[in-house]
């Protein structure tokens, strides 16, 4: 299990406001890892920095020897919210764009994923429900051949069937040495999948533990996660 990603003494401010402070995190290859934290804890920012999208941070992010943002971007696959496309864009045109932008984008693989997710390539983005949109994002993300996949809240506001599809696609499409980091503020739906759990709170990574170590102490992942917020219920 080699080290895939090293985040060292990372701090990030935006408009004078501290978003992340002294974050340290190491991920090895071949794992499914949850990035847990409340909304606003800094999960998305941390993912965006790892992905090379957010810049001007302090500290170092090293992905298999690459510390430059552009190099990292090419090596990892990050769920993009499809924000750059107009509503009238068809799925097949989004795919064309991905195939041009990302050298590691495999159109055959995407077709497999698209069929699995039951998405019609002729559909326009404006016609997609929230669940379908999320399934498209996941299909686009997994159609790239990367060693690290960053899924930013893939289960937000979608129905149980779409969730099941996405979970199954993770099991089916994850290659052995690839690592998948999934951010969420609710752990139950993915807890049986996890190798490791990373808790983000108070603008930093508070703890990083193996799921089995947590369960070995007869604690569920949910109890473990909630224990970080226990003291706040009294306020």
């Amino acid at each position: 299990m080699s080290d895939l990603l090293q985040v060292k003494d990372l701090s990030y401010k935006k408009n004078q406001k501290m978003i992340l402070k002294d974050v340290n995190l190491n991920l090895s290859s071949g794992k499914i890892v949850a990035l847990l934290g409340e909304n606003g804890a800094g999960k998305t920012t941390l993912m965006r920095i790892i992905a090379g999208v957010a810049k001007n941070y302090r500290g170092e992010v090293n992905l298999e020897g690459s510390t430059k943002e552009a190099e990292r971007k090419a090596k990892l696959s990050f769920t993009d919210g499809l924000t750059g496309f107009s509503d009238s864009t068809k799925i097949k045109d989004v795919v064309k764009f991905y195939a041009i932008i990302f050298q590691d984008f495999d159109e055959n693989e995407f077709t497999e994923l698209r069929k699995f997710m039951k998405l019609d390539p002729e559909m326009k983005l404006s016609q997609l429900s929230r669940g379908m949109r999320e399934k498209l994002i996941i299909a686009l993300t997994f159609a790239r051949k990367a060693d690290l996949y960053l899924l930013d809240e893939p289960f937000g506001g979608i129905d149980a069937m779409a969730r099941k599809k996405i979970i199954n696609s993770i099991i089916l499409w994850k290659e052995e040495k690839a690592t998948i980091l999934i951010s969420d503020h609710f752990v139950n739906e993915i807890s049986s999948l996890l190798d490791e759990v990373v808790v983000v709170k108070d603008h930093t990574v508070l703890e990083h533990k193996s799921a089995d170590d947590i369960r070995q102490n007869h604690k569920s992942i949910e109890e473990y996660y909630e224990s970080f917020y226990a003291d706040e219920d009294d306020e």
Binding site: G30, K31, I32, I167, N168, I171, L172, K174, E176, S192, L193, L194, D195
Partner: peptide, 14 residues
């Protein structure tokens, strides 16, 4: 392994 993982909704590693 993969079929079991899918059937049980667990990680292939597990």
């Amino acid at each position: 392994v993969r079929k079991l993982a899918l059937e049980l909704t667990v990680n292939v590693n597990t």
